[in-house]
């Protein structure tokens, strides 16, 4: 019985226009597969990865600078070679991907929550509140997002004692990337809210006597979320890149818990001494992840746009 219901749900999901458009877009399917492989690989890194790069007892300096296994001197133990401390590059990528994806995901959620709330308030209330929120947004938009993130990161670091910094490095990273990105969600949601609030179903709820906050949450919010989903996908890729950039610049996560950006930075030093694999493989992974998430975002945008159907 329960299985029947679930099978029905799956069949219905398979039958929707969205699923159909997905099946008929090779780009979407391939980028979904790439994204999924990277996400699953990172998520289950402790089980999937051949080594644990953070377990000091398993790494040995003897294994340092091993090339990938298909190159002379490589070992099947380390398929993509090892770094200067003898850590397995593949394992480091999988564990690093965890941090990159985690920071990307949480900073996107932070930016979405902040931006959607600000946009709903601005669009619904209008007047002075709207003007204030949107002017703040305009000012922030006139700085590059990476600069804003660096600024927030810098302020937090300068106000905290040094030994606490590493512990909350992730939180700071998520906060600064999220804060630098709320503006685009706020603008988007404000615009849609202005349209939705004048639609007759919202007026109908007002005539019924529904409390304004309830109207915003139950009527307006669900109807402005579709474009947010599209932008959030693309922002997710941007957040991963921003995290990598910050880590590459050395203000991101500490080297003890390297993200993809940290791996690239660390490996970068060995690029010209011949140990190219230490930086190239993390870089390729980062590029593949960001590209496929972006392509997915493009597909979602087109698939949800009624005018392109």
């Amino acid at each position: 019985m329960a299985v029947d219901v679930r099978a029905g749900v799956v069949r219905r999901a398979w039958d929707t226009d969205l699923a159909y458009s997905f099946r008929n877009s090779p780009v979407a399917v391939i980028s979904a597969i790439v994204t999924l492989v990277l996400i699953l690989g990172s998520l289950f890194a402790p089980w999937v990865a051949p080594h644990n790069p953070f377990d000091l007892s398993t790494i040995s300096l003897i294994d340092a600078f091993d090339p990938p296994q298909w190159i002379e001197g490589g070992s099947p133990d380390f398929p993509l070679g090892t770094d200067e401390q003898g850590r397995d590059v593949l394992s480091a990528i999988l564990f690093g991907g965890r941090i990159s994806l985690g920071v990307g995901l949480f900073s996107t959620i932070f930016a979405v929550v902040l931006g959607v709330t600000a946009g709903l308030i601005a669009g619904w209330r209008g007047g002075v509140i709207d003007a204030f929120i949107m002017r703040v947004a305009d000012v922030q938009l006139s700085f590059p997002a990476i600069l804003v993130a660096l600024l927030i990161d810098g302020i937090v670091r300068s106000t905290l004692p040094h030994d606490e910094q590493d512990q909350i490095a992730m939180l700071v990273l998520v906060g600064s990337i999220g804060l630098s990105g709320w503006v685009q969600f706020a603008r988007l949601v404000r615009g849609s809210t202005l349209v939705e609030r004048n639609k007759e179903y919202v007026q109908a709820a007002r005539v019924i006597g529904v409390h304004p906050i309830r109207i915003v949450v139950t009527h307006v919010l669900p109807n402005v979320l579709t474009p947010v989903l599209v932008v959030a996908t693309i922002y997710f890729a941007f957040a991963i890149i921003t995290e990598a950039t910050l880590s590459f610049l050395g203000v991101g996560v500490p080297p003890t818990e390297p993200s993809l950006g940290t791996l690239i930075r660390v490996g970068n030093g060995y690029l010209f001494s011949g140990e190219w694999w230490i930086t190239v493989f993390p870089a390729v992974t980062l590029a593949a992840l960001v590209l496929s998430v972006n392509l997915l975002g493009d597909w979602v945008r087109d698939a949800l746009n009624p005018r392109l159907q």
Partner: peptide, 25 residues
């Protein structure tokens, strides 16, 4: 709003556009 609610409830409205007056979700 609270004081008006019992009076307002007795006055309801049907809108022109049947496509815009129902929340699609």
């Amino acid at each position: 709003r609270k004081a008006q609610a019992p009076v307002r409830r007795r006055v309801q409205m049907v809108f022109q556009d049947p496509y815009a007056s129902l929340n699609p979700r």
